[in-house]
């Protein structure tokens, strides 16, 4: 098992390295150059030249990749092309907003999804199951920018129960309740977006296991359906469920761009979008790497959990 784990971790590192090359290449291919984007239509040849020189855009690409990788490895992300501030400081300030939003959403969405999935499995093919299925399918079919705007329109504009945008002071300095108030609608929007996937996976995984012979044995023993599912089926269905949860958690960190924009939450997503607009390549690359590491990390955790949860992998013959 240890060898299996080490192999997974090494694979993760290789994947991260390959992605780093892709991120570097992709951002190099963006049309236009950063000086044009920053200086706008009022740019003159002279100001463009002095800007390019300052940013060393005149050096060849492979030299810059190696330099960049070297700095990345030592954790030094450099300064932003847009405003000369330290990228690590900027990301640090923004990451907290994104991570907090993702964590609070996960705290609500994951248990809710597993619960709904189990209920659907226990009452498979009943009207409750159909209701959950239809509901989650509806939510997964509607994009976040629609759910988000709809929630804002009803709860903020019409009923005035909730703020329409996350108030910056509440978000950064507010007490717990103010933070919750500022984040309530974003959390709700994101919960709707990730709930369906996890709910349906839980239901399917559990029902899959339900057709195994040992479950039949348990049923014949006279155990109730809910006991069979929770005590006997669920432990063996954990692997696929954990996998889909990990994927959704990674999505929560990297995929919140739209929700952050709608509710004006200063997180990593908005920073990434702004950086792309201003062709602030170092920041785009840094955030891209951060998202990559998040994905690889969550997947690694999911793999490890699946290995630990699976007795056949835990005790290989």
């Amino acid at each position: 098992m240890v060898r299996l784990l080490i192999r997974r971790i090494l694979l993760g590192i290789v994947v991260t390295w390959v992605v780093s090359m892709m991120i570097f290449a992709a951002t190099e291919l963006l049309p236009g150059d950063v000086c044009h984007a920053v200086l706008g239509q009022g740019a003159t040849e002279q100001s463009l030249e002095s800007c390019r020189e300052r940013l060393q855009l005149n050096q060849p690409m492979h030299t810059r990749y190696l330099q960049w990788l070297g700095r990345l490895a030592t954790g030094e992300l450099g300064t932003s092309l847009a405003n000369d501030l330290q990228i690590s400081d900027q990301i640090g300030a923004r990451a907290w907003n994104t991570v907090r939003l993702a964590a609070l959403t996960a705290l609500i969405a994951v248990p809710l999804a597993v619960l709904l999935g189990l209920i659907a499995a226990i009452r498979a093919d009943s009207s409750v199951d159909r209701g959950i299925s239809i509901g989650t399918l509806c939510f997964i079919s509607v994009p976040e920018f629609f759910t988000g705007v709809l929630l804002v329109y009803i709860l903020a504009v019409q009923l005035r129960w909730m703020p329409a945008v996350a108030n910056y002071r509440d978000l950064t300095r507010g007490d717990f309740l103010e933070v919750i108030e500022a984040l309530a609608l974003p959390i709700a929007t994101l919960t709707f977006a990730v709930l369906a996937h996890m709910t349906r996976m839980t239901r399917t995984a559990v029902l899959n296991v339900m057709s195994s012979p040992y479950i039949e044995q348990a049923i014949l023993k006279g155990a109730s359906r809910s006991r069979v599912i929770i005590r006997h089926a669920l432990p063996n269905a954990v692997a696929p469920i954990v996998n889909v949860i990990a994927l959704n958690l990674a999505y929560l960190v990297s995929g919140v761009v739209v929700v952050e924009a709608i509710f004006r939450i200063p997180g990593l997503g908005t920073l990434m979008v702004e950086s792309v607009i201003y062709r602030d390549i170092p920041t785009v690359q840094a955030i891209g790497m951060l998202f990559c590491v998040t994905y690889v990390g969550f997947n690694l955790i999911a793999d490890v959990m699946a290995i630990i949860a699976n007795p056949r992998l835990r005790h290989p013959r």
Binding site: V157, A261, F263, R264
Partner: peptide, 10 residues
């Protein structure tokens, strides 16, 4: 988002 917030009194 800007106009939603404006109409909501933010």
């Amino acid at each position: 988002a800007r106009m939603n917030a404006m109409m909501a009194g933010e």
